[in-house]
């Protein structure tokens, strides 16, 4: 079977990989000649944190996340399985308690245990939640690895900068199916998609060392810091109801920096290596789903759960196309009717 995958963010690359691994002849069509800053996966935190996400996400994300973990652990580039540490300053302890009530698979750590886990945070936090089963990786390395593997799997890569909406609305060219993974760009067809703007920073300092993502709970500015190696730390991310993909506000940077500074004052001396922004594609319920129109399947709405959900969605798309199997909860067969729900 011939499959055309449009888009090379994490959704597209996972779909292409899955179809190629299952014996399909895959062609990837993308506006860029590989993963780059034009897709919002590029800006992701790279946290595989399904248990933390359960604090506010629907159970479906937990199911997808657990399943996707297995996919990522099969890669040559193994995720760093050091867990996640969630902390709050003493005046925000009610938030930490609430977080613990709404999540599972954590251990409650006191100050000594927090210091044991992350020595640089010694004396800074009196309590923390440790999610030992979670992991993280560098999303850009992972995207590039997936892309390289695709070529090894025999997939063809086509750079097509101007694939028009009309072409995309028609049948796939020289393929049995098209898997449309264009993210927010697919709004021309998926009219209920919206953007949720996220801004992030990369800081560099050799004065702080962290072994795992640290999430700081705060009523207004929750933030996470993901160690990226080479003394670099990703600080993210804002969540703003906006389609903007190219404008970082001073306020957002201020808030992210303040939060990083609150985790450790040495971040105040760090170099700002990068300031990034993009908009996450989301449906009104912030849940990802598959939709079909003619010979096209759309994988979209991954919101802030790209790396958590993409492998699980890719598998469902392949099961659908190759075996006619549909999964509850992940599939809208009739686009448009859903919106009334």
């Amino acid at each position: 079977m011939k499959v055309e995958v449009v888009g090379c963010g994490v959704a597209g690359l996972c779909a292409a990989t899955t179809f190629a691994e299952r014996g399909c002849e895959v062609r990837v069509v993308s506006k860029s000649d590989g993963p780059d800053a034009s897709c919002c996966s590029w800006w992701a935190g790279g946290m595989l944190a399904p248990w933390c996400e359960m604090e506010s996400a629907e159970p479906l994300i937990g199911i997808f996340g657990a399943e996707s973990m297995a996919f990522w652990h099969r890669l040559e580039l193994k995720p760093v399985a050091n867990g996640t540490l969630v902390v709050a300053h003493s005046r925000d302890l009610p938030d930490l308690r609430q977080f613990s009530r709404r999540t599972t698979k954590w251990d409650w750590f006191d100050a000594a245990a927090v210091a044991d886990l992350e020595p640089d945070l010694a004396g800074r936090f009196s309590n923390g939640l440790f999610f030992s089963g979670e992991a993280h990786f560098h999303p850009r390395d992972v995207l590039e690895l997936l892309f390289a593997r695709l070529e090894a799997l025999g997939a063809k890569i086509e750079v097509e900068r101007g694939m028009s909406a009309i072409e995309l609305a028609g049948d796939p060219r020289d393929a049995d199916w098209r898997i449309d993974c264009r993210g927010l760009a697919a709004r021309d067809v998926l009219t209920d998609l919206r953007g949720v703007k996220g801004e992030m920073l990369v800081l560099e300092t050799d004065e702080v060392s962290l072994s795992r993502p640290v999430r700081l709970l705060h009523p207004r500015i929750p933030v996470y810091i993901v160690p990226r190696g080479d003394n670099r730390f990703m600080v993210g991310a804002t969540m703003i109801e906006s389609d903007e993909r190219d404008r970082v506000t001073a306020r957002s940077v201020l808030e992210l920096l303040s939060a990083a500074y609150a985790v450790h004052p040495s971040f105040g001396e760090a170099e700002i290596v990068e300031i990034g922004v993009d908009a996450r594609p989301a449906y009104p319920d912030n849940l990802p789903r598959l939709r079909q129109r003619d010979r096209t399947i759309f994988i979209n709405g991954l919101y802030r759960h790209g790396f958590l959900a993409a492998p699980a969605l890719a598998r469902r798309a392949a099961d659908w196309v190759l075996e006619g199997k549909q999964f509850d909860g992940a599939v809208d067969t009739v686009h448009g009717d859903w919106r009334a729900a």
């Binding site: 998609l193 919206r194 703007k197 703003i240 109801e241 906006s242 389609d243 903007e244 404008r247 306020r251």
Partner: peptide
């Protein structure tokens, strides 16, 4: 305040 960029980029949320 936060959602409105110069291009009123928060329209999708407001229409919901």
């Amino acid at each position: 305040r936060r959602e409105s960029g110069p291009d009123r980029a928060g329209q999708a949320f407001w229409s919901l």
